[in-house]
Amino acid sequence: MDRAGAVTQRRENCFVERRRRNQVTDKPKIALSRTILLAVASLLLLPSYSGEAQQPANPAEAAGQIADFFGKVGDQIYENCIFELSDEQIEVQHALVDAYIEHGASGAAARKLAANQIQPPKLSVECEQIRNMPRLAPPPPPTEAATPPAAWEPKIAAAPKPKAPPTPPARAISLASKKVLPQWDCAEGVDYVTIQHKGYLRKLTGGEICNPFQDVVHEVPAAVGNFRLGYTIKTGRLFVITEGGARGQTIAWAISGREVCRNNPDPDCLATRAVGPLPPGEYAFSANKDQRITWGPTIKRYVVGIYLKKLWGKERFTPQQTAAILARGNIAIHERLKGEMSEACLGLEPNGWAYVASLIKNARATGLNVYIDEPYPQVAENPPVVVASSFSLTSLFK
């Protein structure tokens, strides 16, 4: 082979080698392109938020769809996605059946009426799609590596401690003599039935507690900026605390406390866990802004946890009451469903909860002050309670 032929052969060899290398290096690019196309295609194939949910082919796809769905619309729908009755609603429903039967209704009629009266709220289209997603099997629990046995050490008996002198028993806090405040009792001429719930009497009309608040919401002007929330125990009013022009402006209305202690600032009520309303004082939200709204598995909805930083009016309480108040926990702000009351929380109606939650989520509301009496009487309105009821005892015998 002459010199020109050798050069031509080397060029062909280089071309072949370059082509081979390009084929190898193009494989990841092709795979990446396919991955991107599949990802885009999966987004395009996701069900529209106004149509019916498609059933994914496998659990991994379902997980991806749910994650993407929540990423797109989770902030807008989290406050409305309550798929089933809460435990309290189920208990109230069963108690209603017993109460209706005592009034002479048949078992079938009592169950049907109670089921119609106590229902979860109507879901949005978005929530219906999440509800129709297939349930994913939980991952298997991780296996723990065996730990080596601890080295043997001799045990030395501790010296006996001197016994402390016995303390006299404190007077037990009792709510037996308490009565529902007149403003929360059933209005004259309204039919109601009385149920037993966790040892306390509760009057219900049409499955709802007597005199619930209307779902009133007053938006806070954007010019107000950041502010603290205020709450009055006696009236249930939630309002703005700020130095601006909206000082004392009503935002919404919320129930706090249950049965005889509903919005009742009696010291014994405030000292009774899971029954009394919020104690008066200064409260803070979670320091982590991303954790201010969290899922409450017990009540099956989202909640805003609040933490008592300073108790006000200690002179009103005995040492025993003060200790009991400071020992209370699990205090939060959340939505109240039909038939429920509130265990020391602020129970807002659906629209009120959605708006107040948005104020807290967006860090416009920075904390909460709770008062016994109204601090801004000049701007406070009367509680917007629902007095009338369409429930009639004759419906038990239809």
Score class of each variant (00 low, 15 high):
Thr232Ile: 04
Gly51Ile: 03
Glu219Trp: 08
Thr25Tyr: 07
Val92Ala: 00
Gly257Trp: 04
Lys72Arg: 12
Asp266Lys: 02
Glu61Gln: 14
Ile299Glu: 00
Asn116Arg: 13
Gln378Arg: 11
Asn116Phe: 07
Gly352Glu: 07
Asn22Lys: 10
Ala150His: 02
Arg21His: 09
Ile30Val: 07
Val370Thr: 10
Val387Pro: 02
Pro47Trp: 08
Asn226Leu: 07
Ala145Gly: 08
Ala327Asp: 04
Glu343Trp: 00
Gln65Ala: 07
Glu343Pro: 00
Cys210Arg: 04
Gly107Cys: 09
Val193Thr: 07
Tyr371Trp: 14
Asn369Trp: 06
Gly104Glu: 04
Pro279Cys: 13
Ala324Pro: 01
Thr235Ala: 08
Pro169His: 10
Ile331Val: 13
Asp98Arg: 08
Arg131Ala: 15
Thr167Ala: 12
Arg228Cys: 10
Thr8Met: 12
Ala323Val: 05
Ala344Asp: 01
Leu278Trp: 03
Ala157Tyr: 09
Thr294Cys: 01
Ala187Lys: 07
Trp253Ala: 05
Tyr49Lys: 12
His103Pro: 02
Cys81Phe: 08
Tyr283His: 03
Ala67Asn: 06
Pro165Phe: 09
Val97Asp: 01
Ala287Asp: 15
Leu359Arg: 11
Leu43Tyr: 14
Gly347His: 01
Cys14Met: 14
Ala327Asn: 07
Leu348His: 06
